[in-house]
């Protein structure tokens, strides 16, 4: 019996050391994540990247010029419906073929600017590990694993350009490293002379205002929530009451973040035509449940169990 216990202990210890291999001390991890977050504000580049969510793939062209600390950028989709986005500092203009409403968010993050300015919160939920060197789009990169400290979130892998700190590739995987979501440059010119003509919009882009939906401080009377039950490591970023089609009453929309991914929780009074259940595409999970007269749906790139916990916070 004793030898069995010892064997089990050895297994646990071995698994522990294997997981911790290459783990960077927090100070070094903070510096590296800061470097990745700051690079898009300092480096000009022009290239094409793919964005893969589950089995849906899109190719996007980006021209990104930094001048006097101001970011000028143009992105357009190369497949699917035509979409074009032009950004000058905080001013964002958009063209979407066939129309469609879109809001911008001050904290919206587009590849390769995926990380927050302050990575300390990220490191409360993840640890950073060295995972070697590779080449992406012809550039030398350092590979890092952002591994979750618990099972409430998925692992991520980051490919950082050695010279500039820019992310050239980023993925979200399952616990057995199965690929869910991926962003990756397939062609990239870093620095040097970038044709500023590439910044001019080709389509009639329209300026967007930052979200008109004002945040609310307190929940509506019907929406009782046990905020202490919110899954560990997620912070409420904002909550708004948003109108939604075919609804007579606005829907409460809460956005939570763990520093890397975000979760949306929608709660509404009544019974929308969505049965209890769950869905999934790549890392994106959806979970829906009716609690008495309140319907709650959580959406996010986190494991299904995490969404169940979020939905449960509204249990009436």
């Amino acid at each position: 019996m004793r030898s069995r216990g010892f064997f089990a202990l050895m297994l646990v210890w071995l698994a522990g050391t294997a997981m911790a291999a290459g783990r960077l001390p927090d100070q070094q991890a903070v510096r590296l994540l800061q470097r990745m977050a700051q690079a898009p504000k300092q480096v000009s580049f022009h290239g094409v990247y793919v964005q893969q969510y589950g089995d849906s793939l899109e190719t996007i062209r980006v021209c990104h010029v930094v001048e006097n600390g101001l970011v000028n950028e143009r992105r357009d989709s190369l497949d699917g419906p035509v979409r074009e986005m032009v950004r000058q500092g905080d001013k964002v203009s958009l063209f979407v073929q066939g129309g469609g409403a879109f809001e911008t968010q001050p904290d919206g993050r587009l590849f390769p600017a995926l990380l927050p300015d302050d990575p300390t919160f990220v490191l409360e939920n993840y640890t950073l590990h060295q995972a070697g060197r590779e080449r992406v789009a012809g550039h030398e990169v350092e590979v890092y694993d952002l591994l979750p400290r618990d099972t409430l979130r998925f692992p991520h892998r980051l490919w950082m350009h050695t010279g500039s700190g820019l992310l050239l590739k980023a993925s979200t995987t399952g616990y057995r490293r199965e690929l869910y979501d991926l962003f990756a440059f397939s062609q990239l010119q870093l620095g040097g002379q970038i044709d500023r003509g590439q910044l001019k919009p080709v389509n009639p882009v329209k300026p967007l205002n930052a979200s008109r939906l004002g945040g609310i401080d307190s929940l509506p009377a019907w929406g009782r929530q046990d905020s202490k039950a919110v899954p560990h490591g997620f912070k409420l970023v904002r909550q708004v009451l948003r109108p939604m089609v075919k609804r007579t009453r606005p829907v409460l929309h809460q956005v939570y973040s763990d520093g890397v991914v975000s979760v949306s929780v929608f709660a509404e009074e009544g019974r929308p035509n969505l049965p209890d259940g769950s869905g999934r595409q790549g890392a994106l999970n959806v979970h829906s449940r009716q609690w008495g007269s309140v319907h709650v749906t959580a959406v996010g790139e986190v494991p299904h169990e995490t969404l169940e916990l979020f939905v449960r916070t509204f249990k009436q």
């Binding site: 964005q51 969510y53 589950g54 089995d55 849906s56 899109e58 996007i60 992105r75 989709s77 699917g80 419906p81 979409r83 986005m85 958009l94 979407v96 879109f102 809001e103 911008t104 968010q105 904290d107 919206g108 993050r109 587009l110 948003r242 939604m244 089609v245 929309h253 956005v255 975000s262 949306s264 929608f266 049965p275 209890d276 259940g277 769950s278 869905g279 999934r280 595409q281 994106l284 959806v286 749906t297 959406v299 996010g300």
Partner: peptide, 27 residues
Amino acid sequence: DYLAAHRQSEGNPFVERGVQKAQFQVA
């Protein structure tokens, strides 16, 4: 609608996926 609102909250307009390919399991 929910998926679109979530995507908007992430600020990425280059997402065309709806639920066409998603499996939704009803309980």
